[in-house]
Design a protein around this nucleic acid. Structure first.
Lengths: 210, 210
DNA sequence: TACTGTAACATGCAAATGTATGGTATTGTC
DNA sequence: GACAATACCATACATTTGCATGTTACAGTA
């Protein structure tokens, strides 16, 4: 029977599988077969094997719908972090139950429930490229090390600052000369977690504004 | 045997399935079983059936890894955007096929294949809070409007700048006084896409450094 | 022609996986 | 206690689906 020039079909197979994977719906070998118009399962199968050899796909052996894109296979798993509009005093867990939305986060190491996101208010951290309206993704932990970017609760407010320990006191340092550090007794500060990522959603319309 | 108070476990089952689905890796019934610590497949199965009854999930009958989120064909969906180390001249598609990894992105509106991510080099955009090493998430499009933050190819380099049209010429403006704008004939600039999000991964260890 | 490599075909088997049958324990209600 | 409802368990069955075996067709090359 007739064939197709070298590599051409392979590219189409890859494109199909990639699109399906990126859409969150891994295809079966038979779905690849149908999509490409092959009359034998084996044909689709062979193309997939080749793509794996070439390193363009990763196969999960004997696993249904087991093909993945390299780099997204193991280790890196996506979870959803709740976006908290504000953190009510003493009720982080309650706030997590009623979020403003969810953000997909590449949770390497962190458990799903350990992450949340907060919207930054104020310009106190512009010195490290964190602007008002930015989202910080936070891993919950009760302690911090010097230099960590943390979310801490001071009174009823949750705030993003750089953490620094000074003897029995704690300094929450803004990264903007116009703001003064907050120095408190260690007992008066509750560390909610550590900032592991910063995001700025620009949206489909607006520009970046100088 | 013992049980768990009403609804509590169901929520965990749903959270697990939802996270997996949004991560692009639909779970099997047995994976749900293991993740929740059930000793019988049937238990996970029953929870899934309930979630379908409640309308929180949609089942694909007899389909492997067939559970879906209702309305997942539309609306906000998480997709994986390929992270491109660099963009070879004229071969964006080729670069997309061999990415450094993938980032989960909340793709509202954008098709899965339309998104990619680039790592920012240089300090030309620090004025808008984009630092060296930051990741920009880009939606592919061949045109831009004034003020848009774009990724453009000038010669063999892909660069992030603010777009501005000046008659038949195009200005690619850095957001840092130390850098000069690039002004070129419109034909000499290829717009690769528009920046829709900026990310900075701080990682588990290092702080933010002033 | 013969040989080699690639692309495709037809078909069967076995592992993975959804679904069903039936049973045990705990809680709450009457 | 009797009854119902819920949560869970143990196991069997049926479909889906990955993978293997073997074959045919075409192109290029010696």
């Amino acid at each position: 029977m007739g064939r197709t020039p070298a590599g051409e079909t392979r590219g189409k197979v890859f494109a199909f599988v990639r699109d399906r994977l990126l859409a969150g719906q891994p295809p079966t070998v038979r779905e690849v077969q149908e999509a490409l118009g092959f009359r034998a399962v084996r044909t689709a199968q062979q193309h997939l094997e080749r793509l794996v050899e070439e390193g363009r796909l990763v196969a999960g052996r004997h696993r249904a719908r087991g093909y993945r894109l390299p780099g997204s296979s193991e280790g890196a798993r996506t979870v959803l972090a709740p976006v908290l509009g504000r953190v009510p005093a003493g009720a982080l867990d309650a706030a997590v139950e009623d979020p403003d939305g969810y953000l997909p986060v590449d949770a390497r190491g962190a458990a799903a429930g350990d992450l949340f996101a907060l919207r930054v208010r104020g310009e106190s951290m512009t010195g490290v490229g964190i602007l008002p309206g930015d989202l910080v993704i936070v891993r919950r932990q009760p302690t911090a090390r010097n230099g960590d970017l943390v979310v801490a609760r001071v009174g009823d407010e949750a705030t993003v600052k750089t953490f620094r320990s000074r003897g029995r006191r704690v300094e929450l340092r803004p990264e903007n000369p116009a703001f003064a550090p907050i120095v408190l007794d260690a007992g008066a500060v509750a560390i909610l977690g550590k900032v592991i990522e910063v995001r700025r959603i620009l949206g489909a319309h607006g520009g970046a504004g100088a």
